[in-house]
């Protein structure tokens, strides 16, 4: 069966443009604001949505996503409510792929089979679980693939050619290349290093390669989009939302619309990147 992710990347491939992948944290700063943002992302040009499943101990995330996870948890986000957001989105949007991104413990605690069944029913397309390397594939990756969900693996600068086949073996949907050694929202990658890394990965797989970690501006997104099949922006969007919160942590009126305007500048730059490069 072709998944929404495969359909989307195939269409983008035909159009000759890169995907803009937008990350937001589920339930940040509250369920309704989060849904307003989520349901506006596609119209703001997001080709793929990454929805963060908040965790108390996000070891691979920088300060922006750490803070957003804690805001969401404080506002009462749960795994069930995260899945509810996807379910509601699917009432009006049955084409934009949604990938859940997070850490293993909340899934493990819920029970892998139970989680997969509910995620599938809700309309989730893929999973990115940071703390599950290929060495732990039988935990969630293999059951997820069996359940018809894509399992998107992270490849990093430390993933050498010897290790890359193992990392790619059970990857599906796309490959997420982490462009720097570090945490989300930290240093920005050099475009030339990224291009080399993508070429290296493409030597091992025909899957699309999206690049993330450290992309903050439309210019950076455009640079990545010239080399990769997709550019992922997370911390910068989450920070734009944080800047729209009042001193009590509540979203100011019109906050989602202003964050979505920022998302639009990122997606426009990503989509136009190859045209401007050709000029």
């Amino acid at each position: 069966m072709t998944t929404r992710l495969e359909t989307r990347f195939a269409a983008l491939g035909r159009e000759g443009r890169a995907a803009f992948v937008a990350f937001i944290t589920a339930g940040d700063p509250d369920q309704e604001t989060s849904f307003e943002l989520l349901s506006g992302l596609a119209a703001a040009g997001a080709d793929v949505i990454e929805l963060g499943m908040p965790f108390t101990d996000p070891m691979a995330d920088g300060p922006a996503i750490q803070a957003s996870s804690l805001r969401a948890l404080k506002a009462g986000i749960t795994m069930k409510r995260t899945l509810d957001l996807v379910r509601r989105l699917r009432e009006t949007d049955n084409t934009t792929p949604v990938v859940l991104m997070g850490y293993y413990n909340p899934i493990y605690h819920m029970g892998v089979e139970n989680f997969l069944a509910q995620a599938r029913t809700a309309g989730v397309d893929g999973l990115i679980v940071v703390d599950l390397p290929p060495e732990e594939d039988d935990e969630l990756c293999v059951p997820a693939l069996d359940a018809g969900l894509n399992f998107i693996r992270l490849a990093t600068p430390t993933t050498d050619d010897k290790r890359l086949p193992a990392v790619l073996a059970n990857t599906s949907g796309f490959v997420y290349y982490v462009s720097i050694n570090g945490i989300t929202g930290s240093a920005s990658p050099e475009a030339r290093d990224v291009a080399q890394a993508i070429a290296r990965i493409k030597g091992h797989t025909s899957l699309p390669v999206a690049v993330g970690f450290g992309i903050r501006t439309p210019e950076q997104a455009a640079n990545i989009a010239r080399a990769a099949d997709g550019a992922v922006v997370g911390s910068a969007i989450v920070s734009a939302l944080a800047a729209e919160l009042d001193e009590t942590g509540k979203a100011r009126p019109g906050a989602p619309a202003r964050v979505l305007e920022f998302v639009r500048t990122l997606s426009d730059a990503t989509h136009a990147a190859r045209e401007s490069a050709a000029v």
Binding site: D131, P133, L154, P157, T158, T159, G182
Partner: peptide
């Protein structure tokens, strides 16, 4: 060989750390 004591232990780390 997988670093496990029964079901416990293992290597639940980000890919960046796995080679390390």
């Amino acid at each position: 060989g997988r670093g496990r004591f029964g079901i416990f232990g293992g290597r639940f780390v980000a890919e960046t750390l796995m080679p390390l």
